[in-house]
Amino acid sequence: MLRTILILCAFAIGLGACQKTVPEYRATVYVFGTLVEIILRDVEEDEAKKMVASLQEDFQRLHKDWHAWKPGELSRLNATFAQGGTQKVSDLLLPAIIKAKEFEEMSDGYFNPAIGNIIAAWGFHSDELPKGSMPPLDKIKDMAAAHPSMKDVVIEGHMVHSTNPMVSLDFGGFGKGLALDMAEEKLKKMGVKHAVLNAGGDINTVGDHGDRPWVMAIRHPFVKWDVITSVELAPDEELYTSGNYERFREHDGIQYSHIINPATGMPVNHIVSASVIDTNGALADAAATALTVAGADDWHRIAKRMGLKYVLLIDEKGTFYANPAMKDRLKIPEGLNPTFVVSAPL
């Protein structure tokens, strides 16, 4: 996922500093393999610290039990699938499995959290970028030919099994969104009216900034740390971006993306960035991955199928693909003049 730049305040004329009119508490925790920035506005520091501690405890538990390759409940379930067994799952894991099945169906299979074995074969079940020789492509093609799918996962109450031993669940494509949705709801129950949760560029908001909208800038996919566009978010909107240029495998000068086409087992390289605005972070997270795989030819159909209203894709040539409503929200920096391919409305 991309780092998203939070534009939180304007420089005061003659002062060059942001002027706070209400308390603002910031904290950073490490989870899901990245830093999660938490910004709470209009919350006193002592109370904010307690809220952050509660969220951090939740994040750490989710990180452990939803992790695809480190010891935890999900990795135990994947081992059970490989052995053809059945496992009782917790109230924490079961909703994530149900969501995974829903999102695969909604995306017509472009989003498929059951291909963990293929992702692992490419070397992406690691905290570091994969190195060394290419994985055996014949083996990967055989894995894809086994068609692991969430449709193979059978849920009977809290008992779960797979009819396909090649199924291995990996929540990397929507786990952050689901976790941030849970955190957002918890903050609202605690009385928070204005907040941002930023997990490595995947953004959930609570309310607005207080006196204006939250403004988010999406990083330039070709110029590190530069901005290619920005958007204003309405209260409680989320912005999720999936990109192929931060996590990849490089071999002989070619970068192979961590985003895998479930049908072929091969990395997706045509779309370099996909951004989705929605009021549900898990859906936006999954959709950004699905639309990257769907590509320029099929993204609009999938976006409609998933009920999306705001989508932006950028291909390897820098061409923008967007629906009209999303195009109208984009603020392009001065000096940039991207080519747009504007779809029919969603």
Rank of each mutant, 00 (worst) to 15 (best):
P345F: 14
V52H: 04
M51T: 00
G295N: 02
V29Q: 06
S242V: 03
G173K: 04
Q56C: 02
A294R: 05
A217S: 07
P71Y: 05
Q83I: 01
F124K: 08
H258W: 05
D108A: 08
L187Y: 01
D278N: 07
S54W: 03
A282Q: 08
K188F: 01
G295E: 03
I7T: 14
C9G: 14
K188H: 10
I260Y: 00
E47Q: 12
Y240E: 06
S168R: 14
I140H: 08
E37Y: 09
S275W: 04
H194E: 09
G201K: 08
M143V: 00
D42M: 05
D208E: 04
Q19H: 15
G253L: 04
M266R: 02
R305M: 11
N164T: 00
A263V: 09
G265F: 05
V268F: 02
M190R: 11
E45P: 09
E102C: 01
S273V: 02
I332L: 11
G109W: 05
A17W: 08
K99C: 09
F59N: 08
V276E: 07
K188M: 12
W122N: 12
H270P: 05
L336G: 02
A288T: 12
D181S: 04
E184K: 13
L137P: 12
P130A: 14
V227N: 01
N261V: 06
E237T: 04
N323G: 12
R219W: 03
H270C: 09
Q83D: 04
D315I: 07
Y30W: 13
E44G: 06
